[in-house]
Design a protein around this nucleic acid. Structure first.
Lengths: 336, 336
DNA sequence: TTGTATGCGTTATCAA
DNA sequence: TTGATAACGCATACAA
């Protein structure tokens, strides 16, 4: 069994013809005689010739690979996005290199460097929670590599972006809570330097204002995990003026709230309604099932990848799109 | 602003020295004078020189990239594995190319071809549900690319493998159900040509036998999604000899069973106990929380990546490991 | 201490 | 119809 990959040169040598002829025969060049073509193709097939994509990339300085930087692979929303990206990329014959920043700024910086070195055709990125300096992303752009942000975007850098309609989603969710009878609604958010947090908070605030409800700053908390929610919620439920509704920045957090509420012997949704954000796997597993804002991660991934490919192909040179993926409410049992 | 990436040649030209000198200066070769080094490094830094990984790969025919073929990115278990792989790969300065077969055999075949063309240093793969022909994987091996299977392995190909201890996990789970009082236990499985299905079924059967319980073939069903479980379970619950325990091949399926059981006004775990497999995100969201077999996806990913890197480095040349990741039971509220 | 030549696999250009 | 050559970016054996 031949162990190393066979090259065009090998075929040429064995067949006593020149490498250029082999190359042309393989790509069915009109100048080459059918006899030669058949000979070459047969040999290539028999010995499992596979073109070396590296050599091709070096020549064309374009390697049909896009890099993705994502805070956490192991998160339903992000893995949905990744899945959408993979699908579009694959259709266009691109590979996908995945980098997980792990919510770590230094790792994010290293990832951008690695992707530039790999000469990827383009980069898709979602910021890590703690990123406040964006030089490494500017570096990507200065290297002439198209860049598209998704979800956790930064507005300091001019480029394409794909976000969900965080403001509208939040507004609609809170409005729904209000219309179904909630008077005091708490909001658990991710850190507020993130655009998604700002936008959702604005949606939350505007919904309250529209219906003339008072804003109570003590009901707005930074909390975006199940564990934190289980930790901080009991105290809030203990207050005489406890809220009758919660709007959470993600489903994990909402599930934590639900756990705390049930533990406090309160009823969902009668005593307390809960609204999540994402529609992840766990939403349907909750009892009652979680009402949540569908975030269409898969769609977002497809959109982001499409924008990136257009940029790579130069179709949208110099123009920057701000794509907004519509959200919609999924009403289940955790709200009235 | 210079738009295209600067190369060693560019630096050489600008500094009136030869490319080899630049190359050596950049990697701090002892032969080069400090003056030259400083000059080169300053220029490289000022103009954001980044080595072209493609060219390097072509030279060394080793591109520090590993390919991963996975049925579904958007699945908690697999994304955990991916996360573990990424971590180990990253530490060793490898990139990770992710291919999603989407449980589609043809896509899986295309993915293997693409990875070979990319001349990845190694491949990690988990079979798609319907794969019964393994030639494309043999192709990888014949191309002298190290290959490690994880979770959904095939035994027809000689290579490293990482699996969870499906047999022991299933045995322990079913034994737990029996010891907590279950007499008739149903088993919902993935298709039986998969090794994981076979092994878990054997664990299930042996546990029943050990305790002298009858095997009822009508309680062994192919069903591995929430939707299917919701569909087929009511009929089983309706039978006069309905089971008092369920062992499901994954948590989604278990959650579907739980939904059906509650809908039938039966109590979990008093009337019917439920055991899942995976410990995914939704396990804790269920009410009662799901007892499940912890599958350590992250560990599995780390193990698989480590095995692969060892093979790539030639450390384990010619020897094939069958790594078994231990499972453990997580007992929560869905069992007595 | 630095420069020249070569090759990794491929293909475009020019020549035969 | 086919072949020789150069080039993509880099590293290294060899020469100076």
């Amino acid at each position: 069994m031949k162990k190393t990959q066979i090259t065009i040169k090998d075929i040429a040598r064995e067949l006593n013809i020149s490498p250029s002829t082999v190359s042309r025969a393989l790509k069915n060049h009109p100048d080459i005689s059918q006899v030669t073509k058949d000979l070459v193709n047969k040999y290539a097939k028999d010995f499992h010739y596979k073109p070396n994509a590296l050599a091709l990339s070096l020549r064309t300085s374009k390697n049909n690979t896009i890099g993705v930087i994502v805070p956490e692979i192991n998160n339903y929303f992000f893995s949905s996005v990744l899945s959408g990206i993979e699908q579009i990329a694959n259709q266009a014959d691109y590979n996908v290199i995945v980098c997980q920043s792990g919510e770590n700024y230094e790792k994010e910086v290293r990832d951008t460097k690695a992707l530039i070195s790999s000469r990827v055709s383009g980069v898709l990125a979602s910021l890590c929670k703690h990123t406040t300096n964006y030089d490494h992303f500017q570096d990507i752009i200065d290297s002439d590599i198209p860049l598209v942000f998704f979800d956790r975007i930064c507005i300091g850098i001019i480029t394409d972006r794909v976000v969900v309609d965080d403001y509208a989603g939040a507004f609609a969710a809170v409005e729904y809570l209000i219309q179904s009878g909630c008077k005091r609604i708490a909001f658990y958010s991710s850190p507020f330097h993130l655009e998604i947090s700002k936008n959702r908070k604005n949606g939350y605030l505007d919904a309250l204002r529209k219906y003339g409800l008072m804003v109570d700053e003590s009901l707005i908390r930074v909390c975006d995990t199940r564990e934190e929610a289980i930790m901080i919620t009991p105290e809030i439920l203990d207050r005489p003026d406890r809220p009758d509704g919660f709007f959470a920045i993600n489903d994990h957090c909402a599930a934590g709230i639900m756990y705390a509420v049930k533990s406090a012997k309160l009823k969902v949704p009668d005593d307390i309604a809960i609204f999540g954000f994402s529609d992840g796997e766990l939403a349907k597993a909750c009892d009652p099932m979680l009402s949540t804002v569908e975030q269409h991660g898969f769609e977002m991934g497809k959109n982001a990848a499409t924008l990136l490919l257009d940029k790579i192909d130069g179709i949208t040179h110099g123009q920057y799109t701000n794509k907004i993926v519509k959200t919609n409410l999924i009403i289940r049992g955790s709200t009235k």
